[in-house]
Simulated assay, not measured.
Amino acid sequence: MLVNMNDILLPAKEGKYGVGFFNAVNVEMARAIIETAEELQAPVMVGTAEVLLPATELNLVADYLIPMAKKASVPVCVHYDHGLTFERCMEALKLGFTSVMYDCSTVSYEENVERVAEMVKICHAMGVTVEAELGHVGDNAGAGKLENPEDYYTDPDTALDYITRTGADSLAVAVGNAHGDYAFPPKLDFDRIDVISKKVNIPLVLHGGSGLADNDFRQAVQLGVSKVNIFTDIDKAGKAGVEAGIAAGERTMMGLIAYEIDAMKKVVAEKIRLFGSEGKAC
């Protein structure tokens, strides 16, 4: 069933379990995610991000994801992640996405507040939920890599003011996490997660989940992280599945699909169980 983010994350926060958000840039990814969630009776969030649109445009993602979510036997939120522009977020709304992240983390604090508050007002009038980011989660490599990530960590006192003024439904925090592959094991600031969670009292979001240690996930969820973003792990699994199919003698795309989906389903199942959301759709 198609739901919004609050329908999934508020019970998760109350129950102290996490819910995976998985990007799905093709139908095979979408099948792997939703089919696994159904098999494990777990709520799930699925969608795409603005940075991924060169792979598959937003309208095409909506064409397969929203009907699949509506037909699913478990709660599925279709989320537009890291929306960088007002126009693209509005496009996601018009296409039927039930949740958007309006990422204004690179502008000034006051501008971030103003933009997100406006987005919340529009989205809430349509029954759509909004994720925001305070501080800034950089990348592990490339142009988005931060020289001193600690300078961009989320400040707990500022977070309370931010949520009070914007009304955002969930908050992505910068606490030692980063997007992409980790060159070295990250060190999450668990004390910071704990303090922020107690101050804002809304679901927290951990971006850059691929590559974190299992115990990091478990501790973060217990301290208030209700949504964990995963893409790199499932993306690499799909590639490995295709390679396994080729090694097994498959020579057509049709023959490789089963290998691709099977490999990604294993990753999705592993994360659902790790976050503690298995059986929570019952």
Rank of each mutant, 00 (worst) to 15 (best):
D191N: 14
T154H: 04
H179G: 07
G241I: 08
K198Y: 07
R192W: 11
L40S: 01
G135H: 06
M253P: 11
T158V: 15
M254H: 09
K187D: 12
T154L: 08
V25P: 07
N229V: 08
T232K: 04
C104V: 11
A125V: 02
A42F: 05
T56A: 03
G176I: 13
M1Q: 12
V128Y: 02
V27N: 09
V195G: 07
I193T: 07
P43F: 04
F217A: 09
Y182R: 06
L204H: 02
R218C: 06
A30M: 08
R251M: 15
A62E: 09
A49P: 07
D216A: 13
S73W: 08
H124C: 02
V120C: 09
P11L: 05
C77T: 12
C123K: 06
A92E: 01
I261H: 00
D181K: 15
P11I: 09
G18N: 05
G176V: 12
A168Q: 01
I230L: 13
M68G: 03
V27L: 15
V74C: 11
H136G: 00
E91V: 11
L188D: 07
L93K: 03
P67D: 06
C123V: 06
L84K: 15
V116P: 12
V107P: 08
V27Q: 11
G167W: 02
D161E: 15
Y153E: 10
L204W: 00
V268A: 11
L95S: 10
E28V: 01
I33R: 02
L40Q: 08
D233S: 14
N59Y: 10
D155T: 01
N23Y: 00
L60I: 13
D214M: 06
G20E: 06
A42P: 04
M253E: 13
D181P: 15
G245F: 13
K145R: 15
L146Y: 08
V25W: 13
V128K: 04
T98Y: 07
N112S: 10
K265F: 03
V51I: 14
E111I: 11
D194V: 00
F231T: 11
A178K: 13
N26S: 12
D235S: 11
Y152L: 14
F22G: 07
I193N: 00
N59I: 07
D191I: 02
G47S: 03
L188N: 07
K239Q: 14
M1N: 11
G15Q: 11
E14I: 02
K280R: 15
E278T: 05
F22V: 05
G20M: 08
K145T: 10
